[in-house]
Design a protein around this nucleic acid. Structure first.
Length: 421
DNA sequence: TCCGACACATAACT
DNA sequence: GAGTTATGTGTCGG
């Protein structure tokens, strides 16, 4: 019972609280949270590296078959989620059996009935151990419970104005994003994630007063900050297309933080920086939809989900009797026919190289930022991203690999101390 | 002490 | 319902 070797791995449903260590950090977080907003104001002009350019060119396949089972799957998972939210016990039959065997309780009820006192005692003990056992159980690696809505994002912050080319109207972009996996709240409202675990985030944008049809019939421009002869000027530039990017920042803005994305193969597959998604305006799917979109291998289901997450330009051109030549809107500049309506970032982790220990009183925390980019072409026909607007999370505490992070508190890594009598 | 690599276990998915 | 997949996290060893 005392050891936590792989032989007695037992998985539980999560129930987060916060550790004293986190509380210390949280104090610093609270003190710094106003400064955090200020820190974002000075976001440097973004530069596109080679690898980013490569990701911009990433291609996604979309097709459009109908899956009659899809709605049912979602419905069932919705029911499951309701159960989880009501904290119904979710022990599997197997787990119950293991528990009984461990506690030498199997096949004894007949005897116990004749010794009522004993019976109560044993019930009490069983209950106590059940609670201990339940608390000791870790979150199963594939548990639905790992999909949890994370911290909300700030209001959209504007960095560069967007104008509609047709009438020079100032256009107001609105970014939305949601974390769907990987973060839990501590007792005092701090958001906690684990360096070793994945998180999932979805994001989309819209332009105020521009419904989708109006959007794809227009072009947009912005201004690029540049310096000429030592003077800073703003140069009018057309936006070839829009894109959504995910970045992480540290409270200590000297420290650069990067993210990695794994494939479902994890260690056996390649690692990438999170992609930059060329995107058109889209509606945010709900949490259940994101959950249902993960780890599908069935082609029909994947195609069905692609309809939520991607816009198929080829199909649109086909339906409207247009093509890349005839079209003179922002749409024709997108690098692929498969264009994100919703940017989905799955299997993202903070890079393992990040240092998590705070060096001073200023405990470190991180924030995630979703950025709306305007992709432009510079004089040399090179694509450049202009940061148009962004939203950010509240401070996030990322727990490292230290075993202490897996023993103290009721997070997904919670391991209580067991006191033998 | 931190990290890459490997390993085990288990629910989702097919 | 059985086989496969994805992923939290335990562990070893540099």
């Amino acid at each position: 019972m005392m050891s936590l070797s792989n032989e007695d791995l037992q998985y539980r449903k999560g129930d987060p609280t916060i550790s004293p260590d986190d509380a210390t950090t949280a104090a610093a977080v609270a003190a710094a949270s106003s400064a955090a907003a200020a820190a974002v104001a000075g976001i440097p002009q973004v530069q596109l590296k080679d690898e980013d350019a490569h990701h911009l060119a990433q291609h996604h396949q979309v097709s459009h078959h109908h899956d009659p089972h899809h709605a049912m799957v979602q419905h069932q998972q919705h029911l499951h989620q309701q159960q989880l939210q009501q904290h119904l016990p979710l022990h599997t039959h197997q787990q119950q059996q293991q528990l009984q065997q461990q506690h030498h309780m199997h096949h004894i009820p007949h005897q116990v009935q004749q010794q009522h006192h004993h019976h109560l005692e044993m019930l009490a003990q069983a209950n106590e151990e059940d609670i201990l056992e339940a608390a000791n159980r870790k979150v199963a690696p594939r548990s639905s419970d790992l999909f949890r809505v994370g911290p909300g994002f700030s209001e959209t912050r504007h960095h560069q104005d967007i104008y509609c080319k047709k009438n020079d109207m100032d256009v107001n972009p609105i970014l939305e994003a949601r974390i769907d996996r990987g973060f839990e709240t501590g007792e005092n409202g701090t958001w906690i994630g684990y360096k070793r675990n994945y998180f999932t985030l979805v994001a989309s944008f819209s332009l105020e007063n521009f419904d989708f049809n109006r959007f794809i019939q227009n072009k947009f421009y912005t201004y690029e900050k540049a310096s000429k002869d030592g003077e800073s000027i703003e140069k009018k530039v057309e936006i070839s297309y829009f894109a959504i990017r995910l970045v992480a920042k540290c409270s200590d803005d000297e420290v650069a933080i990067s993210l990695v994305q794994h494939t479902a193969k994890r260690d056996k597959g390649p690692q990438f920086p999170p992609p930059i998604y060329p995107a058109v305006p889209g509606d945010m799917p709900d949490h259940e939809t994101v959950r249902a979109s993960c780890n599908k291998r069935n082609g029909n289901k994947i195609e069905n989900m692609n309809k939520v997450f991607y816009f198929d330009r080829a199909e649109y051109y086909h339906n409207t009797n247009l093509d890349t030549i005839k079209d003179d809107s922002v749409l024709k500049n997108y690098p692929s026919d498969s264009i994100a309506r919703v940017a989905r970032f799955e299997r993202i982790q903070f890079t393992s190289s990040i240092r998590l220990k705070s060096t001073s009183v200023n405990s470190r925390y991180f924030t995630l930022h979703v950025e709306l980019l305007g992709i432009i072409e510079d004089e040399d026909a090179q694509i450049q991203p202009i940061l148009l607007s962004s939203i950010e999370t509240p401070p996030l505490i990322i727990r490292g690999r230290s075993p202490s992070n897996y023993h103290k508190d009721r997070t997904s890594g919670y391991r209580p101390h067991i006191h033998p009598h």
